[in-house]
Simulated assay, not measured.
Amino acid sequence: MFEIQHQQFKSARYWFSRRTQIDMSPPYQRKGDLWKIADRQSLIDTMINGYDMPKLYLADFTTLKSELNVAGMRYAVIDGKQRLQAIFEFLNNDLPLSENFRLEENPDLKLAGLYFRDVSEIAFEYAERVEEFPMPIVHVVTDEAAKIRELFLRLNKGIVLTGPEKRNAMIGDVPQVIGELAGHDFFEQSTSYKDTRGENLNNAAKILAFELNNEPTETKRVNLDRVVMDFAADEKTLEVAKLGALQALDKMAVVFGKKDRLLRSAGSIPAFYWFIRSIEVERLRMVRPFLETLLAEIDGRSMPLVIEQLEIVEYKAALRNINDRTSHISRVAILKASFLRWLDIVGKS
């Protein structure tokens, strides 16, 4: 079933009171907090000064029992997440008006920098404009994941989505598996690079591609998109690859600490992953000190002991094309050879 329902618009206050019943992070959604504070404040400015806003779309589970309702809530955001978050933040007194805010019909009324509670006390009628703003929300009643993902992509066609964001909305079971891997403790706790536009999803997709091919492979956008399409209906192969990836990510979580400074580059993750995947459990505690030593030698901060000079040149060259198959293979081979030297040096071989 797939039905678009243009119901009577309800107020921002109505939706604010029901915010706990809105799943803001369904599988196909982009990450939250992508809007800068100025963007969020601009939306509130729009509402107070009487301008319109584009339609928002919610999956409505109030009349249809659907397996898509994974969070068990009444609604799920399809499009308009950033706008909803901005409105909820303002009404919850977490977001002030811009310091440059100007009430167009009464420029002498100074509301700039004020929170909702302050505006309510000084000029209730303008705070009420936000509360009573008729939210242009369209209800989507469906139990078809493919239809929601297609709608999301069509609504965002004029917006520059990242590769991970588009891939996350593609049809099939692969996006869900990528999402599960990206939610692993390793990504949530150990990595220290910024995950603002789907970097964790991108690395999870690369890792899954390695597992599905049983070797490092090309991880350019077109290759990852092809993986999503090729294995869309291959549940058995996908499940085996997922379990293998989860086990290897468990090892990664053991090796690295919280917000580990060795993981400040998202591009380092796939090669580290394939290297650590083959390490015996009893040697995992040796991996981080080894990597710290190795990276210092590669960066020229210490004399090369575990890596040869030619390998340093090769490793740096591989970093210039981090998504090439040869780059992954070269870096993993150097990591493995250097680790054996490290074990020999510390007497643990």
Rank of each mutant, 00 (worst) to 15 (best):
L224V: 11
F256R: 02
Y115M: 14
L243T: 14
R283V: 10
Y51E: 07
D299W: 03
S268Y: 06
S120T: 15
E99G: 15
A169S: 12
D45A: 08
E99R: 14
A204Q: 01
E67N: 13
I37R: 11
A204T: 05
T162K: 14
V227I: 15
L109S: 12
S192F: 03
R40K: 15
R226M: 10
M73Q: 14
L58M: 08
L319M: 15
I78G: 02
V174T: 11
L43F: 08
E132C: 08
K316G: 14
I329T: 14
F256M: 10
A232V: 07
Y115A: 07
I122G: 02
R167N: 01
M47E: 04
Y75E: 03
H6T: 15
P26M: 01
I334H: 06
F187S: 06
F9K: 10
K236F: 10
P270Q: 02
L84F: 15
D108R: 14
H139T: 08
E150L: 07
I37Y: 02
P216R: 05
E125F: 09
M24F: 15
Y193F: 15
K10W: 07
E165S: 13
D195G: 04
D23H: 03
L153A: 03
E165P: 11
F133M: 06
R83N: 11
Y51D: 06
V332F: 00
D52A: 10
K236Y: 08
A271Q: 12
T162E: 11
V70F: 05
K166Q: 11
S98T: 11
S66D: 00
G172D: 07
L201W: 07
E239K: 13
E282H: 12
L95R: 06
D195R: 13
R149H: 02
L34F: 01
Y193L: 09
W342E: 01
T20V: 12
I322S: 05
A318E: 03
F2H: 09
L243E: 11
P54H: 04
N69K: 02
Y28A: 06
P270S: 07
L34C: 04
T191S: 06
Q21R: 15
D45Y: 06
S327Y: 03
Y273T: 03
S17N: 13
S66E: 00
I122E: 03
L305T: 15
D299G: 09
